[in-house]
Design a protein around this nucleic acid. Structure first.
Lengths: 207, 207
DNA sequence: TAGAATCCGGACTGTGGGTCCGTTTTGACG
DNA sequence: CGTCAAAACGGACCCACAGTCCGGATTCTA
């Protein structure tokens, strides 16, 4: 081990401290403010008690800051998906895991509306180029592929994820006042209807 | 009509001429350029041979210009939907009309990629607040409602439209090189799977 | 043709992301 | 503990772009 007691050896301790301060300040500002657009980098810098230069040095650009925040918030979910129990974890049956994954995405966006919004809107260029989207899509597609009789897993994964787009979620939750549980149920039902085809299964004409 | 030969009586003829010039120039620039972001209002003004003030006087702001362009391009489709023959027109059976509507939206976005992109991204705030989205959603929801056994027509309409989001279409067509016909088929199949529940229906698994 | 209303157009402003560099902090070494 | 170089700080600065303003040109009315 190195002599120092901190977690990393690479950055100076004031750098690490400021990085955390910025992260905390940004997190706070984004959850508090009405629209992500009116949180400027200067605001974040002021709230964190640092200069603008410090932020750009630590995160590269605005998108980098958003991404860093996103990773932090996403960590628990990611873990539950990679090594957790069913229905989210890898041991779940595909038919159960697909709706669980989508529900997790939806809940995440409901819990982090402003952040997700800022990430999808302001993220330089298309959200589909962001590598975190690629991860979600890849995973969902792989799971869909394991369900027999479902063609076009690639497009299907895109389409299902599109139903959880941050601005749609924001619109439904904010503008149309759809309660959380109702939205979850609607997404689950939508997914279920899609997966209902193919293999033997009751007609599912309930209600 | 009034004594003048032009369509309107309210605007001076140089105003009308400039309006058309701006519309044409913007249309041209948007289809030509790589990303809508790097078409500035000054560019449009220069290409149209007018001053910036003229554009803002005529269209209010950037979003207004986009909206005006959109309306022009959408006109034929709108007509086909309101008074055309099946499967797009109002006399079509709901089960046939839903996929036809979605296909029309998809084709429109394929034919006007940059414009649709600019409209959904840069359109001040959420695309869900734009009234043209409201029209699409309202229509689709109304048609979905007529299909027996389909719950949540409101959410379903949102989710289906989300599958035709401009940036997703752009990503698939541009980045992943999915050919037009394939994308149409995938969307049609996706829709068909959703509507497959309930009443008896052929499998419709054509290629 | 005179006069007034309307419109034109480009100089100007405000704002926010991103850069630069003189100054300060840190940590290693003697 | 004193010295020094590397790293980080921070806010003044730059630039690009949406949107505004007003002196001057154009068009309609009488």
């Amino acid at each position: 081990m190195t002599g120092s007691g901190t977690t990393e050896r690479r950055s100076r301790k004031d750098a690490a401290r400021n990085r955390e301060a910025v992260l905390a300040a940004a997190d706070d500002l984004f959850t508090r403010c009405g629209s992500p657009e009116d949180v400027t980098m200067a605001d974040v810098a002021a709230a964190a008690g640092v200069g603008k230069g410090t932020i750009f040095r630590a995160f590269g650009d605005r998108a980098g800051l958003l991404r860093a925040l996103y990773e932090v918030r996403l960590e628990p979910i990611r873990e539950a998906i990679e090594a957790g129990p069913p229905p989210l974890g890898p041991t779940a049956a595909p038919r159960d895991r697909v709706p669980a994954l989508l529900d997790a995405v939806l809940c995440f966006k409901l819990d982090n509306r402003r952040l997700a919004l800022a990430l999808e809107e302001g993220g330089s260029g298309s959200p589909y180029r962001a590598e975190h989207y690629g991860r979600w899509h890849g995973l969902l597609q792989a799971v869909l592929e394991q369900i027999p009789g479902l063609p076009d897993s690639d497009f299907t994964a895109h389409a299902l994820l599109a139903a959880t787009r941050a601005d749609l979620v924001e619109h439904l939750a904010g503008e149309e006042r759809v309660p959380r549980e109702k939205m979850r149920a609607q997404l689950a039902d939508f997914t279920a209807r899609l997966l209902a085809c193919g293999p033997p299964r009751g007609v599912a004409a309930e209600e």
